[in-house]
Simulated assay, not measured.
Amino acid sequence: MKILHIISSGGMYGAEAVILNMSRTLNESSHSSILGVFSNSANPNLQLHAAATAQGIESHLISCTGQIDRTVPSSIRELAAHTNADIVHAHGYKADIYCYFALRTSDVPLVSTCHTWYDNDLTVSLYGAADRFILRNYAAVVAVSEDVRQRLLKAGVRKDEVHIVRNGIDLRPFDNATPSLREISSPANSPIVGLIGRLATEKGVDIFLRAAARVLAELPATKFVVIGEGPDREQLELLIDELQIRKNVFMLGRRDDMPGVYASLDIMVSASRHEGLPMAILEGMASSRPVVATAVGAVPDVIADGRTGVLVPSENVEALAAKIVTLLNDQTQRDSLGVAAKKLIEKEFSAARMTADYLHIYDQAIMTKEQYAAGAISSAISQGKTK
């Protein structure tokens, strides 16, 4: 089976990691995965295309100029035909909408993964609403959490077309990785607490920084790192100065050595206000890191509080800071949580398991499309006989 993934990428984040993990697993089997990545004129974000190409995964750029580019549907049709795709798998509202208009009369089934929606402003809310309307016409729609599934059902997507597939990761890069940030903790061998995520409101980086200030009041040698880029960087830099924690906080941007980054952390934090199932949490747990995370989206499905990690309420600076301090003062608990976290990821959140779930959905989507086509032909023949 040939699967063509289409995405308008905003950088190397959760959806991109899912695509790469699945592509590697598919290409190591009898199936094949191909990427179509939007090259947006205003903000190309071609890191996924570059990463896929470097890993030997076939990837094509889809030129897109402006908010609406009427050439994109034909580009997608041509790419689907050129690659002889059996399935076109869209990721994100932009890909969903363009793929629908490109292939709505095609024999190629459309599948979408809804990683999540962040309705932070009116424009994004409208895009999300349009996306959920379009998805009613897809052969199958995948939600990464129950929250996303419920939003799809509320929007009118048929229950039998909505599936939940938990994200999965390739565990190999995170086994025995060499720490790459330890120079930050020198010369005092200070503990490092890290957050990995897009610098945007939904990720709660501001909450993390405010919690960092409270932790530093008790444990002043602690270092804090933030990995990622995004639209809120400038205001977050201003907040660091306002909190007077500049010498202990490192905004490291996007990194290409993530296994080494995770291996460097004494504690990993996810302070999100809204989430699906963050890949960063899964990767941190696969690296045997103790994770402190807000109990949002599908996070409680993977973190059992006190057993495989620690949960705190969202937007609660005091609770987040208190849990970080507790763990920093208890090496034994950190080690225990890290070991349990890795065991859980190995058992339930592997890329192999995720890919097997998707292959089952692809098979169903192809069967549904074939049955629909057969029904349409039968109806046309029947109508012809009655004339």
Score class of each variant (00 low, 15 high):
residue 293 A to R: 08
residue 55 Q to W: 02
residue 185 S to W: 09
residue 254 R to Y: 06
residue 215 V to I: 10
residue 373 A to E: 14
residue 307 R to C: 06
residue 137 N to T: 05
residue 234 E to V: 10
residue 27 N to T: 03
residue 380 A to K: 13
residue 203 K to L: 04
residue 125 S to I: 00
residue 253 G to T: 08
residue 125 S to C: 08
residue 255 R to Y: 09
residue 256 D to M: 03
residue 299 V to N: 04
residue 64 C to I: 00
residue 21 N to C: 11
residue 326 T to Y: 13
residue 53 T to Y: 00
residue 39 S to Q: 12
residue 163 H to V: 07
residue 47 Q to I: 09
residue 257 D to F: 11
residue 149 R to C: 04
residue 14 G to F: 11
residue 96 D to T: 12
residue 73 P to E: 01
residue 197 G to R: 04
residue 67 Q to R: 15
residue 160 D to Q: 15
residue 372 Y to R: 15
residue 334 R to S: 03
residue 197 G to S: 04
residue 237 E to T: 11
residue 339 V to L: 13
residue 353 R to D: 09
residue 246 R to L: 06
residue 38 F to Q: 06
residue 236 L to I: 12
residue 168 G to S: 05
residue 139 A to N: 12
residue 267 I to L: 13
residue 348 E to L: 11
residue 42 A to H: 05
residue 82 H to D: 02
residue 175 D to Y: 08
residue 330 D to P: 01
residue 285 M to A: 03
residue 132 R to S: 07
residue 352 A to R: 12
residue 8 S to Y: 07
residue 162 V to E: 08
residue 387 K to V: 14
residue 87 I to H: 09
residue 352 A to G: 01
residue 280 A to Q: 03
residue 190 S to V: 02
residue 183 E to D: 10
residue 189 N to A: 10
residue 198 R to Q: 12
residue 232 D to W: 04
residue 372 Y to A: 15
